[in-house]
Amino acid sequence: MARAVLLFSSNMHANRLVAGVPAAVRAALALCQSEEFASSDAMIVAVPGRWEATPWARSEFARLLPDVRIAIGDPYEGILPEDSPVLDAISVLSGVPVILTNREAVQQWLGEQEHESAQIAKLNAVSSGIVKATGKPSDGLVSRTLNRPISRAISQVLLKFPGITPIHATGLAAFTAILMAVCLLFGGANGLVAGALLFHAASVIDGVDGEIARATMRSSEFGAKLDTITDGITNLAFLSLASLNLYWQGQVQAATYGAIGLALLAIGLTALGLRSISMGGPFTFDAVKNNFNARPSKITNALAAITSRDVYAAIFAVTFALGFAEWMLLIFMGSVGIWLMTVLIVLMETRARRS
């Protein structure tokens, strides 16, 4: 079939990152995913003066469209194939493709593309829409109302840099966890509050790697596993170091609550991790959550909501900042005890079903 021509008014527009992926690559991918051009094995990116693809654009074409040959054209040189449909590339990205039916229409279109700001605004709107769609149906109340707006804003900034990948966001979350640990170890009473706030910040930033992965089509089993491990280490580090901080301050009772709760949590997570490995699927600690999701009810939905990371990280941040660390750790110890019993029951039930 005839190859399509994606027409940009400038190199800046063709190479501009739209949620981390160059606009030319996203437009070509959108066409390949459409019914009309799904079988096309070649496309032309046309830019006045010829397209100068950045190294990042070339690498993204190779990653996302390995089987599609990309040619370069110049609408002013008059060498575009006569039988190829010419499309306004930015309109393709916007979801309402505009086809320029003849050479005169192409020349008229080029003459109308004088307002750079209008084109950039369209590309920014497409980028924002892509990032906005990266939320997950399983997001809890805190995540939807507080965490996601912040994490999306961070993702929007990071996705403006060529070469950004989910691993960079995971590294940012890990760096936040390290700052949290430093505050808890060396900050005394003020460090306890700062550490709790950074624990919540790590929970917010934890959403960034998934958003970048979904926005740039880089989701992977390895990334999900790394994210799970990072979350688990951060959770355990906060609880253990917060308890140690309180012990050093002389709040032995509070530290004891935290230590017992931490021990119970470690037992449960170890059991879940070993079961996940033995089943041979993706490494996860979500066996209990998945079991409840399979048998939904108001009670199980409420339990899942209040035990999600976004909720308990926010609760720890607020209660520690208000000076209720001991009460929070007492509640934590009791809650983990109930959770551990639930974990053991669920694991025994699933083992019995498998047998």
Rank of each mutant, 00 (worst) to 15 (best):
L179T: 02
I205A: 02
W51G: 01
I79N: 11
A224W: 02
L29M: 10
L262I: 11
G187Y: 06
K298R: 15
V5T: 08
A121I: 02
F222I: 13
M43Y: 06
P282W: 04
G268M: 11
I90H: 00
A189T: 13
V208Y: 00
L246M: 15
Y312G: 04
K225D: 02
A305W: 11
T342Y: 03
S243V: 09
A173H: 05
R16H: 09
I150M: 13
A237H: 02
L329C: 01
L347K: 05
A224I: 08
G273R: 09
F292T: 03
L274S: 09
V25T: 01
I167N: 14
A287I: 13
F61W: 11
S39V: 09
M279S: 14
N235V: 11
R218M: 15
W51T: 03
N235L: 12
S155I: 05
L158T: 07
T134V: 04
L244M: 10
T350D: 05
S335L: 14
F199E: 00
L322F: 08
S9A: 15
D83H: 09
N293W: 08
A259L: 15
D74I: 12
R148T: 07
D206T: 10
A224Q: 11
F238W: 07
R218S: 11
A242F: 03
I72G: 00
V106T: 10
L93N: 05
L179R: 07
A202Y: 00
H168I: 08
A89I: 02
E52M: 12
A266T: 06
S138K: 05
V182W: 14
A259Y: 03
L344A: 09
K122R: 15
M1D: 01
I178P: 00
T342W: 03
G323M: 09
V193S: 07
L329Q: 00
V318H: 04
S143G: 11
A181F: 02
L274V: 14
L93Q: 08
R354Q: 15
G163H: 10
R295A: 14
L269C: 10
V68I: 15
A294G: 05
A38Y: 08
I260Q: 01
S127T: 09
F316Y: 12
A242K: 05
K225T: 15
N293C: 10
A19N: 06
I44C: 05
G281P: 02
P55R: 14
S278D: 04
S94Q: 15
A201Q: 07
T300V: 12
L192W: 00
Q107R: 13
Q113V: 04
V98T: 14
L272Y: 04
T176G: 08
A133E: 02
L141W: 13
L241I: 03
L239K: 03
L329R: 01
L172V: 09
I277Q: 08
P22H: 14
H168D: 04
A213D: 01
N290W: 11
G171H: 12
V126L: 04
M180E: 02
L226I: 15
M341P: 00
I154M: 14
L172E: 01
V208C: 05
E52L: 14
R3N: 08
F8G: 03
Q156D: 07
G135R: 13
A177F: 05
L7H: 03
I164G: 01
Q33G: 11
A196H: 06
I338S: 07
N11T: 05
T176M: 15
I331D: 00
L198R: 09
K132F: 08
V208L: 03
A313E: 00
I130R: 11
Y76K: 10
L31K: 11
